[in-house]
Write a protein that binds this DNA or RNA. Structure first.
Length: 256
DNA sequence: ATGCCGGGTCCTACCCGA
């Protein structure tokens, strides 16, 4: 089974990139982040021709997540359980497929909005951990994948790419990511590539891609029985070299 | 070493991202 995630930075700008990538990689499920549109604005994508279904949690202008799948999936949540009911940010989609729970997330960046913006990120991570614990306690095989906006360790950012106070690397951010691992989840990419750069994001500015100055912030976390079946997990760096790319590349995980 | 790039929208100057 192939599960993928990709922050596309506007699905309307990246329609052909996504179609081409689906054709070449044939994932069973692709989670999308930052689609930056409402469900009715989501492009047709020629998905029917490729045999994909789409489920969309949209929002005007910002955020927005979706899932494309070969088989129809049942949406179980359109928002992260535990957040205030008036939270309007489209950052979470959870589906059920083959007895598994799969969550696609666009975790808040946390650098804008001052102290309140960072507090929102930490609260979001707390609720994510609660949701993961709930599913693990029920012995439901679990995948959490998406744009976490977290560089888990020092080796997950190019030297000088971010300052020490950046919301992606602050100790409180990293502690909350580690809490997810301590629940028993496995970081799929890092478990197969234990050391060194495995970038999933390159800033558009300052020729970051050409300088190989990236970040590892898009992740896939697997519950134990899925981690035991992990075959491969890696970002698709080549996608960043294409014309008019997203600043994130897809991450593809294969489970036997 | 940040808003230089590249999305978005009250259509065009400004907000947001990491």
């Amino acid at each position: 089974m192939k599960i993928a995630t990709w922050n596309v930075n506007s699905i309307r700008q990246r329609e052909q990139h996504v179609l081409s990538w689906l054709e070449r990689n044939q994932p069973d499920i692709l989670f999308l982040q930052e689609i930056k549109c409402t469900a009715d604005q989501f492009p047709e994508l020629g998905l029917r021709g490729l045999g994909y279904h789409a489920e969309i949690v949209g929002q005007k202008s910002y955020n927005g997540v979706a899932v494309l799948s070969r088989q129809p999936v049942g949406i179980t949540h359109r928002a992260l359980p535990g957040l205030p009911v008036d939270d309007a940010q489209a950052r979470y989609i959870e589906v059920e497929a083959d007895g598994m729970a799969l969550a696609g997330i666009y975790l808040p960046n946390g650098n804008s909005g001052g102290a309140a913006g960072y507090a929102y990120k930490l609260a979001w991570m707390d609720k994510l951990a609660e949701r993961a614990a709930e599913l693990l306690a029920a012995d439901i095989p679990l995948v959490i994948t998406g744009d976490f906006n977290v560089c888990p360790e020092a080796q997950d950012l190019a030297p000088g790419a971010l300052g020490p106070d950046d919301a992606l690397v602050r100790p409180e951010t990293r502690a909350r990511y580690r809490r997810l691992l301590w629940l028993g989840l496995t970081d799929a990419v890092r478990s197969l590539h234990p050391t060194g750069p495995v970038w999933t994001f390159y800033d558009y500015q300052a020729a970051a891609f050409e300088r190989d100055s990236g970040l590892r912030i898009d992740h896939a976390l697997l519950s134990p029985t899925l981690a035991e079946r992990l075959v491969s997990a890696a970002p698709d760096r080549e996608e960043r070299a294409k014309a008019l790319p997203s600043d994130h590349v897809p991450v593809l995980v294969e489970i036997s």
